[in-house]
Design a protein around this nucleic acid. Structure first.
Lengths: 273, 273
DNA sequence: TCTTCTAACGAACACTGTTCTACGAGCCGA
DNA sequence: TCGGCTCGTAGAACAGTGTTCGTTAGAAGA
């Protein structure tokens, strides 16, 4: 902060500090600053207002809700996610993996902002930008349109959920919890489970604890991409006949037949991250 | 509620109402009743205490935290999830799909309780019960141990996240939002996107909106299971070499070599649902 | 110069989780 | 039977929260 000039005495100060006037984007920027410093729970209307040298009521002239403010913050953060120059279908799995890690990098850089994304439908410009890129890529690969469309849904969930859990993990670390001891405890707890009721779990305790967050994240993405791959027309005769929901008709394996009209309302799914 | 008998005058009432004394399980049961009626946000210490005819401070003798109360509630709810009698490896995909839908049925029956599960490591008895079953099943199928272990992680995430999103969807419905009009709006919004920036998305608007929550859920599970399937030793020469995180070593495709010591701390992942 | 409009804001409302402290009933040893 | 002690209970309070109301003060338009 540069040294402040003394106020000219006969200029009665407009507000106590002649800041730039309040605006939506200024509020959002400030809120993100608070978010980065203290996490989502620290972003209160009072806290943001205080940072702007005003009261909470003033914010409501530019933002109708705390929820709306959160949405705006998410959109702003999402804009930071960089995408490759163009889709490269010949290495689509690598490219998607890279995007997933880029998204996680950006999301976790802003604490637990991913939590905002979890229940919301991505309609912001930046979110659609990512959706557009991925959708284009998946179609170029040759996936059936409906598979590609629904895959975005799932991809967004993976990204958001993992970003959130990565934050939980980091938070515990930052709060001074000795994670080494914590996980040793957990491992011991699994080992000490009654063998007659939890034989497998007890035997697999070490495997359950294996791998850090990034490895597990990479695994989830890999499994998901391999699953997608099985929907490629080339792999049409899939290893096993595709299962579906217990009673409802699940996704069939015939490829182009996907775009069929079943006429249901869309689910409340959040793709795009 | 049955008609209350008048209090016998010469019996001075113990507290104003001669309820059974406070206890952990009574508090949890009451909290779940409030949860079912008003959602997780409605579960406040005051609200639960009021339901028990007492003040909020009284709860803290049996429950150290609101967070702990939430964990106990989750554990209690998870206990409702029914499992098949025994693993049937020959139809493992169907069985897992059934369990996923059973879990979602129970979770969504209790509003947004799934939110509690999202950031927490599943160590409760009921959660471990499910983990034990699934782990056993996956190993019997012949999946490499480490793949099976990490798969539980991913499965838990799918279940929790989808249950939460299903609740968001149902909530909007319950709050009187006309979802038909809402999704029509959304569809129109996608259709009206500038074609030069979002050509694919615009073209695919209908496919993006296709399918209700259950169909999308079934699709995610199916993709995941097909991905898992590709890790079966029989399928060892997978269509493409397994990709990994950009710089880190991802899961290799050799099967039994998994149980290796990489020595990292476990991630903050929540499996089990 | 006077009016009109609107962004800004102080104060307040109805809440929240949690803690402190006093109260009072039940049990135990004498 | 009686004191003393423990421990579950609960009222009040603290420091917060999101949001709204009614007022004010500054700028724009006539």
């Amino acid at each position: 902060m540069p040294a402040q000039m003394p106020a000219i005495p006969w200029h009665k100060p407009r507000k106590a500090d002649p800041r730039q006037p309040l605006s939506r984007s200024l509020i959002v920027d400030t809120a993100i600053r608070v978010l980065d410093a203290e996490g989502l729970a620290g972003v209160t209307m009072r806290r943001v207002a205080q940072e702007l040298g005003t009261g909470p009521a003033s914010l409501y002239a530019h933002v109708s809700n705390k929820e709306e403010l959160f949405d705006l913050m998410l959109e702003q953060v999402t804009a930071e996610i960089r995408l490759p120059l163009r889709p490269e279908p010949e290495r689509w799995k690598d490219q998607i993996t890279e995007i997933c890690f880029e998204a996680q990098r950006v999301l976790t850089a802003h604490r637990d902002v991913a939590l905002v994304s979890l229940g919301s439908i991505p309609v912001g410009e930046s979110q659609l930008r990512i959706t557009e890129f991925l959708l284009d890529l998946l179609l170029q690969v040759g996936l059936p349109p409906q598979v590609a469309a629904w895959a975005l849904d799932a991809l967004g969930q993976i990204i958001d959920t993992d970003a959130y859990e990565a934050w939980v993990y980091n938070e515990r670390l930052a709060r001074g919890t000795d994670l080494g001891a914590y996980f040793d405890q957990l491992r011991g707890y699994l080992h000490d489970l009654p063998a007659e009721r939890f034989p497998t779990l007890q035997r697999m305790a070490d495997a359950m604890m294996e791998g850090d967050g990034d490895q597990r994240y990479a695994f989830k993405i890999e499994v998901f991409l391999r699953g997608l791959e099985s929907f490629l027309p080339a792999n049409a005769p899939t290893p096993t006949p595709p299962a579906a929901a217990p009673d409802r008709p699940g996704p069939a394996s015939d490829d182009q037949a996907w775009h069929g009209p079943t006429g249901g309302a869309a689910g409340a799914a959040g793709a795009g991250g």
